[in-house]
């Protein structure tokens, strides 16, 4: 399903409104999210940024566990449980990811990935207002993850909707701050920023679905075709002069 054909297919098909929504999102980002993320990065000591990041990660544990189990990844499910228990207690309510220091590294999962593992196709690439790059499969995944998250249930039952909003806002700022430099550079050097982001999203999702195990069949340029001769000669010279 994630052969190179599927990947390119996803890249070619897309809603005509995508570029327009992308432009609106970009405007909103430049006006609100990016400045906040920059201020957060520059004015908050790295130590506190790390603590907030760890706490936000820890809060995701129930959703990750749910999806680990649905994907039949029992080893990862156990790791998620152990991590959550250690970090919530010894790690002081998740503020310190000491499980990683103990050698139990974290991972992320979501229902969009679970659907992918179950063999459901991703559908066309869609840029959602506010949420950004997605596709029908991932959009459904996002809704399911929201509904099964005990944090949201708890907040809803106890009239604490503000908790849901603050957590989402914190996650958005935290995520944006981590990618500030990378996205700035990409934006600067891109000839078509929309196309770059689309490709980035598709590749990232494939990587996440395969749990970071890159395929050996990944299409890549090979050396040894026509233009190779010249470079070969040059390097041989370089080898000789070394």
């Amino acid at each position: 399903m994630f052969c190179r054909k599927g990947m390119f297919l996803g890249a070619w098909v897309g809603f005509p409104a995508n570029r327009a929504v992308f432009a609106v999102n970009r405007g909103l980002d430049a006006a609100f999210l990016k400045p906040v993320a920059m201020a957060y990065r520059d004015m908050t000591p790295q130590f506190f940024q790390d603590r907030i990041n760890d706490a936000l990660d820890n809060l995701r544990a129930p959703v990750i566990l749910f999806n680990d189990v649905l994907q039949g990844e029992l080893e990862r499910a156990v790791a998620t449980v152990i991590r959550f228990l250690i970090n919530s207690s010894l790690g002081l309510l998740g503020l310190n990811d000491i499980a990683t220091d103990m050698g139990i590294e974290g991972h992320d999962e979501d229902f969009g990935q679970t659907l992918a593992v179950w063999g459901i196709p991703e559908g066309p690439y869609v840029v959602l207002p506010l949420f950004g790059p997605s596709n029908p499969r991932d959009a459904i995944g996002m809704v399911v993850d929201f509904l099964i998250d005990p944090f949201n249930t708890w907040a809803g039952n106890t009239d604490r909707n503000y908790a849901v909003y603050s957590r989402s806002a914190a996650r958005a700022v935290d995520l944006r701050a981590t990618h500030l430099e990378t996205l700035n550079e990409l934006e600067k050097s891109s000839l078509d920023f929309y196309a770059s982001i689309r490709s980035l999203y598709l590749q990232r999702r494939i990587n996440e679905i395969s749990n970071g195990d890159p395929s050996a069949n990944w299409p890549a340029p090979g050396i040894g075709q026509g233009p190779y001769r010249e470079t070969k000669l040059k390097t041989q010279e370089a080898f000789r002069t070394q």
Partner: peptide
């Protein structure tokens, strides 16, 4: 021939672009 950072390939991204 390629550099892949966090699952994102340089060649692949440029190719789509």
């Amino acid at each position: 021939v390629d550099v892949i950072v966090e699952g994102v390939s340089m060649s692949q991204t440029l190719r789509s672009e």
